[in-house]
């Protein structure tokens, strides 16, 4: 249940030999930004060396790309905030013993959700509600909520019931148990879900272009429509870089926020 959403990081063995472990963690955290910088550098040099025509020049310039990147970040960030605000409290609610019967439903839905193509969802939304930033946002949130919801639920459910009993037995209130035991121990699983959702969102946000909500999808789609490969490739590489960046931030957060003392 958990394993398929847990990314490889932070799972095994970085506790054995502290010093070597720390070096490895540092190395892992350095690797991604270096790779991103390298990719962007290569892209820049390559585009710089090309003879661009007027159509290409209209998109492959600083202002245009800056605006698309900002739009893309905005889509992703706002969607993420909404996802967190919806999915984590909901996950807590459905993890309560009284709501246990909901969990198979959530698990089923989240598997189904991953199988439904995102473009289909956007098209359906557009047919029903028209185009615009809000519609894009609804699509993005609908996509991202499920992994976070599921991981919040599973993360809390996998907390050892003996710990909850010990906490209750010592006189913690239900809220205290939730906040200082259950959620704390679920942090790694919740963050893993969040990281998955964010990376997913960066990718799905390229489809925002179909509902006129901008983002790097504009470049990709223009590149395809006008068969301007440099435009297409630049859009694609920029999207990838953002995805990796977000994933990298996620891994940082997992290492920083993971409660110390967990193996």
């Amino acid at each position: 249940m958990v394993a398929d959403t847990l990314p490889v990081t932070g799972g095994v063995g970085d506790t054995g030999a502290p010093r070597r472990g720390r070096a490895r963690v540092l190395f892992r955290h350095l690797g991604t930004p270096i790779a991103i910088a390298a990719a962007l550098g290569v892209l820049y040099l390559w585009v710089h060396g090309l003879k661009l025509d007027s159509i290409e020049r209209r998109t492959l310039n600083y202002t245009y790309m800056h605006d698309r990147v900002i739009e893309h970040f905005k889509l992703t960030l706002i969607a993420s905030v909404i996802i967190v605000v919806i999915a984590i409290p909901l996950g807590v609610v459905v993890s309560r013993p009284r709501a246990r019967w909901v969990s198979p439903v959530i698990l089923g839905l989240s598997n189904l959700g991953q199988a439904i193509p995102s473009i289909g969802v956007l098209v359906l939304l557009t047919i029903k509600f028209g185009v615009g930033f809000k519609i894009a946002m609804i699509g993005l949130v609908a996509y991202g909520v499920l992994p976070v919801l599921r991981n919040t639920m599973v993360g809390i459910q996998q907390v050892d019931p003996a710990l909850v009993e010990a906490a209750r037995g010592m006189g913690m209130t239900r809220l205290q148990v939730l906040l200082s035991v259950e959620l704390r121990l679920a942090v790694p699983v919740i963050l893993a879900g969040l990281r998955t959702a964010l990376v997913l969102t960066v990718g799905v946000a390229t489809l925002a272009t179909f509902v006129n909500a901008g983002g790097l999808g504009d470049m990709i789609v223009n590149g395809i429509k006008l068969s301007r490969h440099p435009v297409l490739i630049t859009g694609g590489v920029l999207t990838c870089c953002i995805a990796f960046l977000v994933d990298w931030l996620g891994s940082l957060a997992e290492d920083v926020l993971r409660p110390r003392g967990l193996s």
Binding site: D160, A162, L163, E165, A166, A167, R168, G169, M170, G171, M172, T173, V181, R184, L185, P259, R260, G261, L262, S263
Partner: peptide, 22 residues
């Protein structure tokens, strides 16, 4: 109940130490 439990020591078989606390 919560007041009561704060004044009754409780040890369970699984020990139940909180792994995230020192």
């Amino acid at each position: 109940p919560d007041d009561l439990r704060r004044h009754v020591g409780y040890v369970i078989q699984q020990i139940g130490l909180f792994p995230h606390l020192t």
